[in-house]
Design a protein around this nucleic acid. Structure first.
Length: 237
DNA sequence: TAGGCCATCTGGTCCT
DNA sequence: AGGACCAGATGGCCTA
C-alpha cells in the first residue's frame, strides 16, 4: 500500500514490482536500484547510503563497481536459522522501540502548545520531526534577533507557560539571550516576565496565531522535505 | 473503500 | 560470526 512517507519507495511499487525478497531479479525497479538513488549519497554522506539491494542491480547502475567478477557468482547466503531469525527479530523490535522512545522524548521536549496545535493522533513521526525542526529554527531566529516581534513574545511566553510550576529556575543562557533580544527588540526596559505574562493571555495567543505561521515546519531548504508535501500553514483547529 | 500510519518480519549489507 | 542498520513487504488499524 502506498504511503506518504514512502514516496521514494513508491516509485518501485508503482512499477508493479512483486519482489518476494527471494528474487533480486534484474527486472526489479525498486528505488534503491535506481541509479540516481545509488549515486546520490545525500547531504549527510553518512555511514549508510541508499543503494541498490541486489548485487546485480548495483552492478548495473554503478559503473565503478569494484567487486565485479568476484561477486558475480557469489553464493546466496544461507537463511538464518530459526533461532537466529527469532533473535534478530527481537533485536529489531527492541531497536524500533528505542526509536519510538526517542520520538516520545522528542515530543516531550516540544512545548505542549506546539503539539496542541494538532490532534494527538496527528503527531506522527514525520510531523514530530518537522515540528521539532521548525521549533529549533524559530528559537535560532529568536537568538539571531531575526524573528518578528510577535513571534518572539509568543514563543517565549509559550515556553514559560510550558515550564513546570514551582520556584523559578535561574534563566538559562539561552533564556537570557532570548529575553535580551526581545527587550532590545521592544526598545523598552520592561520586565520580561510581565511582558511574557501579558503575552501569554488567551487573546494574545489568538492574536499570534497568524505569526505562528512564521514557524511553519516546512522550509524549501530542508533536504528531507524535498519531494514532500508543500509548505503547511497551520490553521486553527 | 482508499489512503495514511504503524509494527513486524525479513534479507542484504556493513561493522566489530 | 554475530550484531546493527537499513529498506522492502505485508497486514492491521484508523479516518475521511
Amino acid at each position: 500500500m502506498a504511503r506518504l512517507d514512502d514516496q521514494e519507495t513508491m516509485k518501485g511499487s508503482e512499477m508493479g514490482t512483486v519482489d518476494d525478497n527471494n528474487n533480486s531479479d534484474s527486472s526489479s525497479s525498486s528505488p534503491e536500484e535506481r541509479p540516481d538513488a545509488a549515486k546520490s549519497p545525500g547531504p549527510s554522506g553518512g555511514k549508510y547510503q541508499l543503494r541498490p539491494r541486489s548485487v546485480h542491480a548495483r552492478r548495473l547502475c554503478d559503473s565503478d563497481w569494484s567487486f565485479g567478477e568476484s561477486l558475480r557468482h557469489k553464493p546466496r547466503a544461507a537463511p538464518l536459522s530459526r533461532y537466529r531469525r527469532k533473535t534478530a527479530n527481537a533485536r529489531e523490535r527492541y531497536r524500533m522501540r528505542q526509536i519510538n522512545t526517542a520520538f516520545e522524548s522528542l515530543r516531550g521536549v516540544l512545548p505542549s502548545w506546539v503539539c496542541s496545535r494538532r490532534a494527538a493522533s496527528d503527531m506522527t513521526k514525520i510531523a514530530t520531526l518537522r515540528l521539532a525542526s521548525a521549533y529549533i529554527r524559530s528559537l535560532q531566529d529568536i537568538l539571531d534577533g531575526s524573528a518578528p516581534q510577535d513571534t518572539c513574545s509568543w514563543v517565549l511566553s509559550a515556553i514559560l507557560d510550558n515550564a513546570p510550576s514551582g520556584p523559578q529556575k535561574p534563566a538559562s543562557p539561552i533564556h537570557q539571550a532570548s529575553s535580551g533580544q526581545f527587550l532590545e527588540h521592544q526598545g523598552q526596559g520592561a520586565d520580561l516576565v510581565s511582558i511574557l505574562t501579558g503575552a501569554s493571555s488567551h487573546q494574545v495567543f489568538q492574536d499570534n496565531l497568524e505569526s505562528f505561521c512564521y514557524m511553519s515546519p516546512v522550509s524549501h531548504n530542508d533536504d528531507f522535505m524535498l519531494g514532500c508535501e508543500p509548505p503547511r500553514v497551520w490553521s486553527e483547529a
